[in-house]
Simulated assay, not measured.
Amino acid sequence: MTLKQLVYFLAVADSGRFVQAAGEVRIAQPTLSRQIQALEDDLGETLFTRGRDHVTLTAAGETLLPLARRIVADVETARLEIAELAGLRRGRLRVGATPSLCVGVVADVLAVFHASYPGISLQISEGGSQDLVADLEDGQLDLALVIHQQNRGVAAAAGAGPTRGATSGSGDSTLRLTPVLREELVAVSATGGQVGLDEALGDHAGIVELARHPLVVNRPGYELREVVLSACAAAGVTPRIAVEGGEMDAVLRMVERGLGVAIVPSLVLAGRPGLRTTRLDGSGWTHRTIALAHRTDVAPTRAAEAFRETLLAVLARTSRTGALPPGVRFIHSSSTG
C-alpha cells in the first residue's frame, strides 16, 4: 500500500468514476485502474463494485475510506507543519548565555529576533560557560554565548555559577566558536566616598594596588574569582578578601554599599551610577572573548541560523552607532567563525 494509491482510491470513491478520478489526479485512466487493482491485490479485497459507467464502494472499501482520509490528511498536515518550520513561522529555539550577557546583549538580540519571527518559541538558559557547553553537547541547547579566554579554553562565566565538565577550546571537534565580542574586565568601587578605602582608586590601577584594598569576590568555583586570584599570585601579592560569595548582582550591590572593590566584566555596569570604574593595568587576564558556540556534528536548525544572523546584525549595528558599552567591541568579521 502506498500513499499515492490511497490518494487515487479517494479520488475514485469521491467521484464514482475512474475516468473523472483520473482527470482529477492528472494521470491516465489505465494507470489509475492498475494502481487501484494493485491496492486491492495488496489488501486481498475488492474495494469497488464496478458498473457500466459508475462504481460504488464495497464493504472493504467503506472500511478503508475513513482510514485513507485520515492518513492522507495527516500527511498533508505534516507537509504544512514542516513548511511552517522551514519558513520560521513556528518552531523552537534554545539559547544559553551567561548572566552578564542575558541582561544586555541577549535581551536586545531576542527582541529583534522575536519581532521578525514571532512564531518561534524562545527558551533561554543562564549558566556558566562550561555548563552551557555541556548542555550543548548533550543536545539540550541549540546555541550558547560563552566566554572564551586565550589559553584557558571555554571559561565559566563571571558570577554565573560553579563549573562542571571538561574545558572545551576552539579546537574541540564537536563545537565551533564564533568570536563576536571582546570584553574588558574593570575594577569597580563605590562613588561618593562611601567605600572605606585607604586611598581612592584612580582611573587606572594594577593588581598590586587593588590587592591593598578589601576585595569583594564570588565564592570558590567561579571563573572570575580564579582569574583575580591567579593575577594576584602572579604579581606576588596576597589579596584582602572582605566578602566572598553571591551572584554578580549581589557583588555589585556590596560594592555600592562600600564593602570593598571588585573586578567585573564591563557589560554588567549599565545602569549602575553608584559605581566608579577603574581600568586595569595588565595584559592577558584583563580582557576576554565572548563567542557563539554550536555543535558541528549536527546541522543547525533554521531558527538557530536565523538567530546567528540576527545576533551578528544587531551587534554590528550597535557597534557602528557607538552604542556598545565602554570596554566592549565587536570583533566578528566575514572570515571569522
Rank of each mutant, 00 (worst) to 15 (best):
R317D: 12
E81S: 11
R34I: 12
A83Q: 12
C232L: 07
A115Y: 03
L275F: 03
N151Y: 14
R240L: 13
L197N: 04
L65N: 01
D42Q: 14
A156V: 05
R308L: 09
T58S: 06
A83I: 09
R276V: 03
R276A: 13
A107K: 14
E209H: 10
R253L: 15
E137M: 15
S121T: 14
V195P: 00
A157I: 01
E305S: 13
T286E: 10
D74K: 10
G322H: 07
R308W: 04
L311D: 05
L292C: 02
R279I: 07
L252M: 13
L3E: 08
L67S: 13
D249A: 15
R69S: 05
A231I: 01
V261E: 11
G192C: 00
V95S: 00
R302N: 12
S230G: 14
R79C: 07
L252C: 12
H54Q: 13
A234P: 04
V72P: 06
A303I: 03
S333N: 11
E126I: 08
L280M: 13
R272W: 05
R240Y: 08
D198M: 12
A306D: 00
R92Q: 11
L210G: 05
A107N: 13
Q5N: 02
Q20S: 14
A107R: 15
L311F: 04
H213D: 06
E184T: 15
V208P: 00
E40Y: 05
V105G: 01
G96A: 07
L3Q: 10
G91A: 09
G119Q: 02
G337K: 10
A262F: 04
L324V: 11
R89Q: 11
R272Y: 07
P273C: 09
L275M: 10
G196I: 11
S33V: 14
V7S: 07
E45N: 05
V95F: 00
E209L: 12
A313T: 14
R89H: 07
S129V: 05
A200Y: 05
R90K: 10
S333R: 13
L229T: 08
G171F: 15
G128C: 07
A205C: 04
L10F: 01
R317F: 03
G284H: 01
M254R: 15
A11W: 04
V55R: 06
L185S: 11
A190G: 00
E62K: 11
I124F: 06
I36A: 07
A21L: 06
G61F: 07
D108H: 11
Q130W: 00
E226F: 03
S129Y: 00
H294P: 02
G258N: 03
I27F: 07
E183T: 14
G196V: 12
Q29N: 09
P214Q: 08
D14C: 08
